[in-house]
């Protein structure tokens, strides 16, 4: 554990609390992509298969259970409690391509051609692009509530903070997880445009608006 990884994980936790806070306080899931949220459930379920056989490190286990539980809970909230506020017409990014592409990448790049390693690799490739339906929805609506942009920022910052963590571990421990590193870099690039608008507008106190 180093400071970058810890900050990354805290950013990930914060993103979920911001999302839940947004849904509760605005009593609406408007602007939140159901498709991205569903992809996150798939990401966590396929990555944390090792919960079934261990080893169960306390920190990791608690976090894994939280990420699975909270992502399923958000889906539940969107599907039932706050269903009418959901932008179903605009939230129509073709996730089949993201899932299919990630699966092909997982078949090509994995540590071993076993079910759990292919699923682990799949989860990383899928996570790297899982925000695309959310960014697509943002593009379609052209603007976003500030709290929604804080959510997306915290979620993107989590993986961006893992990059110095990997650099640190490579230098200090000689440890490199190539799949995680490549997928993490792709994920951060996917967020680049969003980060730019977030830093130039939201941080300056302006509304998140995309040029028409």
């Amino acid at each position: 554990m180093n400071i970058f990884r810890l900050l990354g994980d805290l950013s990930h936790l914060a993103s979920i609390f911001i999302l839940l806070h947004k849904i509760r306080t605005t009593k609406s899931c408007a602007g939140i992509s159901f498709r991205s949220q569903a992809l996150y459930v798939l990401v966590y379920l396929t990555r944390y298969l090792d919960l079934l056989w261990g080893p169960w490190l306390l920190y990791n286990t608690v976090m894994k259970l939280f990420f699975i539980g909270s992502s399923v809970y958000v889906l539940y909230l969107m599907k039932f409690d706050y269903k009418p506020s959901h932008d179903m017409g605009l939230d129509n990014f073709k996730v089949e391509y993201l899932i299919g592409g990630s699966f092909v990448m997982a078949l090509l790049f994995n540590l071993a051609f076993t079910f759990d390693e292919v699923m682990w690799s799949f989860s990383l490739w899928l996570e790297s692009v899982a925000i695309l339906p959310q960014l697509f929805l943002l593009q379609r609506t052209g603007e976003a509530e500030t709290i929604t942009t804080h959510y997306i920022f915290a979620l993107g910052a989590y993986r961006a903070l893992y990059i110095p963590n990997w650099l640190y571990r490579w230098v200090m421990e000689g440890r490199v997880e190539f799949i995680a590193v490549f997928a993490g870099i792709i994920q951060t690039i996917v967020y680049a445009d969003f980060f730019y608008v977030y830093f130039t507008k939201v941080i300056q106190g302006q509304k998140f608006e995309l040029p028409a």
């Binding site: 090792d50 071993a112 076993t114 759990d116 390693e117």
Partner: peptide, 10 residues
Amino acid sequence: SAALETHDEL
């Protein structure tokens, strides 16, 4: 999974 590397990150 343990043979090659253990995935100890989230």
